[in-house]
């Protein structure tokens, strides 16, 4: 008989005491993984005055919570957070550790992984337990999917973006064990977060928008990009992008949809001037209707949507905007 399998951990994240949705989504997925491994789900949360919030973790599926509660943990402090998580992991030997692909998670996860001497997979879009009880971490690459495993080192670590896994059904009757963490004595920090400033995002948030218009390299230039933005405006949609569009500087990184960006699940998705690279397409989850406009009839995007228009988007989209305007006016007068 194998030795007792370690737990599945989720390193949760909070902003102003509010637990991020991705942390709960990961607990939901951790529950499934833990079931196959016949082990428990444990959550680490560092913050201030988080004791009132921990019930959410139990409701989402956690069996045990490691709670670090102190004013100096209120916002992410790289060294303190890393120290505490590394120490805890060394002590409890988790089998799997999942972290959200947030700015914090993307910095914290590699710091922890390197200190624990283990592997880390970025921006996974699926996690399954294989026949050998090993975590298969799937990421899109080279027009397909690749599976990455960490066969020997533990924990098996992965970061996952918000929206990859659904929100778990909350069971408010669930409870569990809370372990209060000792706050380390004054370590003289070499890096400190002085302040976190958040601005209200402009426009409709991509993640919850009923209509998403996404633009890619096919826009050609900033003028072409404005045409696509025009389509999103008339539809009252959120405007998303692909990495090439971000690299061109037409839009901000925050608008990028896909593996290392945002996950969207709109009623209607319209992809304009994008080829349909999997890194982007995995970001569209459960859209009701999907449309692609691209001038290359062989673009892989046409194998991934419901309606395809083979045309130059810079010519087609302005006409589409006019037609939609007509339709909207008709609808109002009817």
């Amino acid at each position: 008989m194998n030795k007792q399998c370690g737990s599945v951990w989720v390193v949760a994240e909070q902003i102003d005491c509010r637990i991020l949705p991705v942390s709960l989504q990961l607990i939901g997925q951790a529950r499934k993984l833990a079931k196959e491994l016949n082990t428990s789900v444990e959550t680490v949360i560092l913050g201030d005055q988080m004791d009132k919030r921990v019930q959410e973790f139990f409701a989402a599926g956690a069996d045990r919570i490691y709670l670090g509660n102190a004013p100096e943990l209120a916002i992410y402090q790289p060294e303190m957070y890393t120290e505490m998580i590394v120490k805890l992991a060394k002590e409890h030997q988790p089998e799997i550790m999942l972290i959200g692909s947030t700015s914090m998670g993307t910095e914290l996860a590699p710091l922890v992984a390197a200190r624990l001497g283990t592997g880390l997979t970025a921006h996974c879009i699926d996690l399954i337990i294989d026949d050998n009880k090993i975590l298969e971490q799937r990421i899109p690459a080279y027009g397909g999917l690749i599976s990455i495993i960490c066969p020997e080192k533990r924990p098996q670590m992965a970061t996952i973006a918000s929206g990859v896994f659904p929100h778990p059904e909350l069971d408010e009757s669930r409870t569990g064990e809370i372990i209060h963490l000792e706050i380390p004595n004054e370590i003289s920090p070499r890096v400190q977060t002085l302040e976190i400033v958040r601005e209200e995002p402009e426009g409709i948030p991509l993640e919850s928008a009923p209509i998403v218009v996404a633009g890619g390299a096919g826009a050609g230039d900033i003028e072409g990009w404005r045409i696509i933005a025009g389509l999103s405006e008339i539809l009252n949609a959120a405007l998303g992008s692909t990495r090439p569009a971000v690299d061109e500087g037409w839009t901000e990184l925050e608008t990028m949809i896909g593996q290392s960006g945002k996950m969207v699940s709109p009623e209607l998705y319209i992809g304009v001037g994008l080829s349909g690279e999997l890194q982007h397409m995995v970001g569209i989850v459960g859209a009701k209707v999907m449309v692609a406009i691209n001038n290359d009839a062989n673009a892989p995007v046409f194998e991934q949507v419901d309606y395809g228009i083979v045309d130059d988007c810079r010519e087609f989209v302005p006409m589409l905007i006019e037609k939609i305007k007509e339709y909207q006016e008709r609808k109002i007068t009817c």
């Binding site: 592997g119 080279y142 027009g143 397909g144 690749i146 960490c150 194998e303 419901d306």
Partner: peptide, 15 residues
């Protein structure tokens, strides 16, 4: 610590 265990192509659900 990590290795690529398999490569797979994706079959789309939509055409």
């Amino acid at each position: 610590p990590t290795i690529v265990s398999s490569l797979a192509t994706v079959n789309s659900k939509r055409i």
